[in-house]
Nucleic acid binder design. Structure first.
Lengths: 108, 108
DNA sequence: CTGGATCCAGAAGGATACTG
DNA sequence: CAGTATCCTTCTGGATCCAG
């Protein structure tokens, strides 16, 4: 899940190195709607483990794609939201959603 | 590299399950320009192993994203090209390229 | 040239227990 | 609730050798 690294020359490779993993894209898909809490994300991502979710969120935070806000309440509440950079990925997710829809139509 | 499976409900997840891997997206990026031969791809994808490239190409072929054409010459020539379905991913790659370009501007 | 087949290390990822 | 820590299994992917 390490993403802090030299960025490749090709901009596509840059994007892939940041979000080229199954879960990250699905997390962004969710956060495009509204901010989510940790367990909300965990429950909505079928099959993800706590560890992998934590690792993914941490590295996305490091990369500046999402923000993490802790509300000092009891019980604690932590909200994840897209940063401006993350929000700017909306066109990517949209085009992937369109393509996925078309693909299913074709192969069914 | 197994991709033959039940497709998830969410179209984004569908797309991710088909091309949510580093190399596949970079292969598509290349094939969007023109058909490529095996060793051309291998040489252009810095760090990919023969096995991983072969596996990736096979599974993309199975998924109907690319085509594989063997020219019965000596020495053998094999060309990989995008199918219509693969070609239809151009908007995804384009939006990823745009985003990657912007991201590098921001963090530099 | 374009791979197929093996072998194997290392990383990714799951399960479980525990904590502020 | 939202993690951290640990262990352990899986499996991707790199290296190498072989073949049509």
């Amino acid at each position: 899940m390490k993403t802090k690294q030299e960025l490749p020359e090709c901009p596509v490779a840059t994007t892939v190195s940041l979000i080229g993993s199954k879960w990250k894209l699905l997390i962004i898909r969710n956060l495009l709607v509204r901010p989510w809490r940790f367990n909300e994300l965990k429950n909505s991502l079928d099959g993800i483990s706590q560890k992998v979710l934590t690792d993914s969120l941490r590295s996305m935070e490091e990369d500046g794609i999402i923000t993490r806000t802790v509300y000092p309440e009891v019980p604690p509440r932590v909200e994840y939201a897209l940063s401006d950079i993350g929000e700017s990925m909306r066109p990517i997710i949209n085009s992937m959603a369109e393509w996925g829809t078309d693909y299913k139509k074709i192969i069914d």
